[in-house]
């Protein structure tokens, strides 16, 4: 299984690049995941999305879909695609250390 390393911590990723254990997530790992996924340096707007995803998943037991993120995080759909151009549906959850969302919207 692939492994991601950030500042001396190693975590396991699944074959699609999602963290296996979301409780191991740290902000440093988010930066490493963003680097790996070609997102680059995380801005304050990225962090707004990541913080929302982490909190929402902790409350609901599953990662939020994109419509939920755009409705509740304060970051609109258009901007989500600018922040995560290669697919915000997967990447927001991935960088947040969460599994792949089940929501289709």
């Amino acid at each position: 299984m692939p492994v991601l390393e950030a500042k001396g911590t190693e975590v396991e990723l699944n074959d699609e690049g999602f963290m296996v254990d979301s409780s191991q997530w740290t902000p440093e790992l988010a930066e490493a995941l963003a680097e790996k996924e070609g997102i680059g340096a995380l801005t304050e707007r990225h962090w707004k999305v990541i913080t929302f995803c982490r909190e929402d998943a902790a409350q609901n037991g599953q990662p939020p879909g994109l419509r939920r993120i755009s409705k509740l995080s304060g970051v609109p759909t258009k901007e989500l695609y600018q922040l995560f151009p290669k697919g915000p549906g997967k990447l927001a959850a991935k960088v947040s250390g969460l599994p792949k969302p089940k929501a289709c919207i």
């Binding site: 994109l66 290669k86 915000p88 997967k90």
Partner: peptide, 12 residues
């Protein structure tokens, strides 16, 4: 509409 949206969410 849902399939096209799912594609965009995956970066397609």
């Amino acid at each position: 509409l849902i399939l096209a949206n799912a594609a965009r969410m995956s970066g397609i």
